[in-house]
């Protein structure tokens, strides 16, 4: 039996813990709201049709960011074209086929390490491997390959995670009907795991869209008169545009830079929200 004083102490401890934990959660929400809110507050003024459709003028102090947006779309599209097939197929292999042994553990360790490599190191690697060694030159292709290397572990992990969610029952049902393992994966497991794989991959691509370091040496340029027209052309990109404006343009125009930041964050959020909505829709259709 608790004495009244012990009970009071326990109540105080409980209240304190609840308030402490709750306030930390609030701080996180506050930071998120502040970051987004501040970007919107500073950037919304610059957003208009001209800003989205014009080319940068006067070294970016005036005009718009049309080629910058197009460059980012190109390079993220290229990243997806490399990272998604390789990452998803590798994830399927690791989850469904790989024997449990030393080699598989080594591959998993390598993937974990890949996820931990700083993005500037990827940039350096991209310069050495794709731009110079492979002779691709500074281009959308080289930058996309570099970003793909960085995004691969995210896609692989998302795929493995999504496949793990699929009940073993379903796999057994398919095999018991005389399906080969590949048919089981193709007709039952992958369709059911697709929402998870796609949303996880989009988060990885969203990060790639915002990276500066990997494209710094591999193809992004400060200013370009034309829209990139081939995978081998150089390109402007949103994060790099912000970086060069702030570091290299005397008397840079804060309105336009914040506007650029808003377009980047807004574009990435738009894609993420679309993916999350689609996933919620799929979930309602398929509940285990």
């Amino acid at each position: 039996m608790m004495t009244p004083s012990r009970r009071r102490k326990a109540r105080i401890a409980e209240t304190t813990a609840r308030m402490l934990l709750g306030s930390m959660a609030l701080i996180v929400v506050g930071i998120a709201l502040f970051v987004v809110g501040y970007i919107v507050y500073r950037g919304a003024g610059a957003l208009d049709w001209q800003f989205l459709t014009d080319v940068p003028r006067n070294r970016g102090r005036e005009g718009g960011i049309f080629p910058v947006v197009i460059g980012t779309v190109w390079v993220v599209g290229g990243t997806a074209a490399f990272a998604l097939p390789v990452g998803i197929l590798a994830g399927v292999y690791l989850s469904e086929y790989a024997p449990k042994g030393f080699a598989t553990r080594a591959v998993r360790l390598a993937i974990t390490n890949m996820a931990g490599v700083p993005s500037i190191v990827y940039g350096l690697f991209g310069l050495a491997a794709f731009v110079l060694l492979a002779g691709i030159g500074r281009s959308i292709l080289a930058a996309a390959l570099t970003l793909a290397c960085m995004t691969l572990p995210v896609v692989i992990t998302a795929t493995e995670e999504a496949l793990r969610q699929i009940p073993q029952d379903l796999r057994q049902a398919s095999l018991a009907l005389g399906a080969t393992k590949f048919r089981m994966i193709r007709t039952v497991v992958l369709p059911a795991a697709a929402p998870g794989i796609i949303t996880g991959s989009i988060l990885g691509l969203a990060r790639a869209a915002g990276e500066t370091a990997p494209i710094l040496f591999t193809g992004a340029v400060f200013q370009m008169r034309r829209i990139p027209d081939s995978p081998l052309s150089q390109f402007m990109a949103l994060p790099y545009h912000i970086y060069t404006q702030v570091t290299s343009v005397p008397e840079w125009n804060p309105d336009l830079v914040w506007g650029t930041a808003l377009v980047l964050v807004g574009g990435v959020s738009l894609v993420s929200v679309a993916a999350a909505t689609w996933r919620a829709f799929q979930r309602r259709k398929i509940a285990w």
Binding site: L170, A173, A176, G178
Partner: peptide, 26 residues
């Protein structure tokens, strides 16, 4: 062998598809 020897499991485990597609899977 499994095309000749079917199995029904402890818990119902239909595929996440239509009734028709479930039956014609095999």
């Amino acid at each position: 062998l499994r095309m000749r020897v079917g199995q029904v499991f402890q818990r119902p485990n239909p595929f996440p598809m239509t009734i028709f597609d479930n039956v014609v899977y095999g």
